[in-house]
């Protein structure tokens, strides 16, 4: 009987279950946005038609246009519309943007990489910077560096990043002209893998990245706390008595164990940063998915909004899934045997 139990457990491996949960979340989001569009008070269809007729398009034509662009047909019965919507979405057809009059997928494909570019740099730099600084702070616990950086981190951590972004913009871009104040690529240079173009991109992304690095202040505080906890562990004392080298102790014993709790928070932060990118890209007029989303909201461009939200949701779900699936490799205690 026990044997049966185990074989059955194997077929429902926890990884598969975890992926199932992720798919469930994505499905739930898709369904929610469908329900939202169908149920939203004030009839989206009507609102769109009115607006388009104000722009001089006759209502019947407007209706046709909108039906073409939305992947949800408001006149269809709900079950049929739902099935159509799901198939369309799963096939990658997110509809047409009303404002830009281009397919939503195209717009997202064009802007998402830029956001990811800024985000990944910001996240990884802040993560590693935070770990390094935090470890140093823990090492000299109570020293000048520790006290100084702790107060710095507390202050900077309590200032919203967009306030910092504005300050950076005022000083580094307008007053001292060190960085461009907007845009995402150098003008006048042909896109391509040339030194000039790539360095131009980095140059334009520098300020947004810099303002997001604030998060590293918080990360370093977390790392400091974790490291201090690890420094007090018995195994560290035993390792020292065993005569292990300082390098082994600091990397394999202290850092390795202190980073563990930060690993999950790193991937969770990706979600928060996507949200932050809406404001950040507005401040720097950096055309990424955040800026497009904001425009879509202003213009009541429902297909684009839904597409954007969906992409962000999927990105966060994937990040968390990756965190879950890989955590066992980082921490053997979390490895499940079945």
């Amino acid at each position: 009987m026990i044997q049966n139990k185990h074989t059955f457990m194997l077929t429902l491996d926890w990884r598969i279950r975890r992926i199932g949960q992720a798919l469930f979340t994505v499905w739930a989001v898709l369904t929610l946005s469908f329900v939202m569009v169908r149920m939203m008070p004030g009839n989206i269809m009507g609102a769109l038609v009115t607006r388009m007729s104000r722009q001089g398009i006759n209502p019947a034509r407007a209706r046709e246009l909108i039906e073409l662009r939305l992947t949800i047909d408001p006149d269809q019965p709900i079950p049929a519309a739902y099935v159509d919507y799901l198939t369309n979405t799963l096939q990658g057809n997110l509809g047409q943007s009303i404002y830009f009059t281009r397919p939503v997928t195209e717009i997202i494909a064009e802007t998402l990489p830029w956001t990811l570019f800024v985000l990944s740099w910001a996240i990884f730099i802040s993560f590693f910077l935070g770990i390094a600084i935090g470890a140093l702070m823990a090492y000299w616990e109570g020293g000048k560096l520790d006290v100084g950086l702790t107060s710095y981190a507390v202050v900077i951590g309590s200032v919203p990043f967009y306030v910092l972004a504005l300050l950076l913009l005022i000083f580094l871009a307008y007053r001292w002209n060190l960085f461009p104040s907007n845009g995402r690529q150098p003008t006048g240079i042909d896109p391509g893998f040339t030194v000039a173009y790539v360095s131009g991109i980095v140059y334009h992304a520098a300020l947004p990245i810099l303002s997001m690095l604030v998060a590293s202040g918080m990360a370093s505080l977390g790392m400091r706390g974790n490291s201090i906890r690890v420094l007090g562990e018995d195994y560290l004392r035993v390792a020292r008595l065993r005569g292990l080298s300082d390098l082994t102790i600091s990397t394999q014993y202290v850092a390795r164990n202190a980073v563990l709790p930060m690993y999950t928070s790193l991937l969770i932060r990706i979600g928060a940063m996507f949200g932050g990118s809406v404001v950040l890209e507005q401040v720097f007029q950096y055309r990424g998915i955040g800026l497009v989303l904001l425009e879509a909201t202003h213009q009541r461009d429902y297909p684009l909004m839904m597409g954007g939200f969906m992409v962000i949701t999927v990105a966060v779900v994937i990040a968390l899934l990756v965190a879950d699936l890989t955590y066992g490799y980082v921490d053997p205690r979390a490895r499940r045997t079945q």
Binding site: D234, Q252, D331
Partner: peptide, 26 residues
């Protein structure tokens, strides 16, 4: 020396073998 806290005398993310090897190596 053998400590009281055997539970916490090993680095939780490394195998027991590694503890022996790194001691010999050091």
């Amino acid at each position: 020396m053998v400590f009281q806290g055997a539970m916490s005398s090993f680095n939780p993310v490394r195998k027991i073998r590694t503890h022996f090897v790194e001691t010999l190596d050091a």
